[in-house]
Amino acid sequence: MINFNGTILAEKETFLTPNNRAYNYSDGLFETIRVINGKIMFWEDHYFRLMASMRILRMEIPMSFSPEFLENEILQLIEENKLADQSVRVKINIHRKEGGLYLPTSREIEYIIRTSTLENPFYTLSEEENTVELFKDHYITSGLLSTLKSTNKIVNILGSIYAEENDYQNCLLLNEKKSVVEALNGNLFLVKDKVIKTPPLTEGCLNGIIRKKLLQIIEKTEGYTIEETPISPFELQKADELFITNTIVGIKPITKYRKKSYTTHTAKNLLAKLNTKARLD
């Protein structure tokens, strides 16, 4: 079952038309959320990121869209799908109501909420091979719009196809300045000695929730220095560790880039702190 504008529908029911603006013009956003036994992880951060993104895209936010309203919509759908005692991935899609061409006839929105199950209740460190390469066919444009979780992810799609065709598990994306911005599915962190770097939002990387949480954690972790600074491709092979972050996996180490293999000591340390923060927030 899904939630479409507050109505619970069977997933196979037709509820979108060919005139949908997200389909035609990528006039939409999405938010991916982790829910554990009925608790939404980092809900306040997800909610405010979604509201800020809607404002940036000049969408009309309904008066009813309070944190309490959306939280209730999510939890009701989880209950309807009999997932209340499980680990759940929730995806919220927001799109502008249909009508118009590039210029919409309305700034009002519609929303869809979907659920699927997750394997683990909290974050675990993957020991799977995770070999990456630079994706250089197309670039992320630095600037505010690239920081949003919009429905325009064509560079990530093409990068994913490139990774599959060349037997990589992931790719790192570049911006027009040839700086490393992020991975296909999350933010990038680089560790060298005790300095941890991640690209600033001005480089065009996603304004990730786990990125934000790790910045807070690292600032309070003795022995490490955090820097939000552009990352050159030349730094990758000099790093001790590289890892990717997103809401679903938490922290995923990169095991190999070209001839360089990486350790996971810092990732393991930070993952434990992230799980603690997830329980307490």
Score class of each variant (00 low, 15 high):
F189T: 01
G186K: 05
N187Y: 12
D167E: 12
Y168W: 06
Y162Q: 05
L174G: 08
Q169C: 01
L201C: 05
N166D: 03
L184E: 02
S179W: 07
V191N: 08
P199G: 04
A183R: 03
N185M: 00
N170S: 11
K197G: 04
P200Q: 07
L172S: 12
E165W: 12
G186T: 07
E176G: 13
E182N: 01
L190D: 03
V191A: 04
N166A: 01
Y168C: 02
L174D: 03
I196C: 04
V195S: 10
K192T: 13
C171L: 05
K192C: 02
K177C: 13
L190T: 06
D193R: 15
C171K: 11
V191L: 08
S179H: 14
L201R: 04
N187S: 09
C171E: 06
I196R: 02
C171D: 09
F189P: 07
S179P: 11
A183T: 06
I161K: 15
V191K: 05
K197H: 14
L184V: 11
K177W: 15
N175K: 10
D167P: 12
Y168P: 04
V181G: 09
G186R: 05
V195I: 11
V195P: 12
L184M: 09
V180G: 09
L201K: 09
L188Y: 08
S160T: 12
L188K: 06
F189W: 09
E165N: 14
E165I: 01
P200R: 13
G186H: 04
S160E: 05
N166T: 09
Q169R: 10
V180R: 09
E165L: 05
Y168G: 00
E164G: 14
Y162F: 11
I161Q: 15
L173W: 06
E165P: 11
P199F: 05
N175F: 12
E164Y: 14
E164C: 14
L173G: 07
A163W: 01
E164D: 13
K194I: 00
V191E: 06
K192P: 10
K177I: 04
S179E: 15
V180S: 08
L188S: 00
A163T: 02
L174R: 02
V181C: 07
K177E: 11
N187M: 01
F189K: 03
G186N: 07
N170A: 08
L190Y: 09
V181I: 08
E165F: 12
L172C: 14
A163E: 01
A163F: 08
C171G: 10
A163N: 02
D193F: 01
L201A: 02
L190V: 08
E164P: 00
S179A: 10
I161C: 14
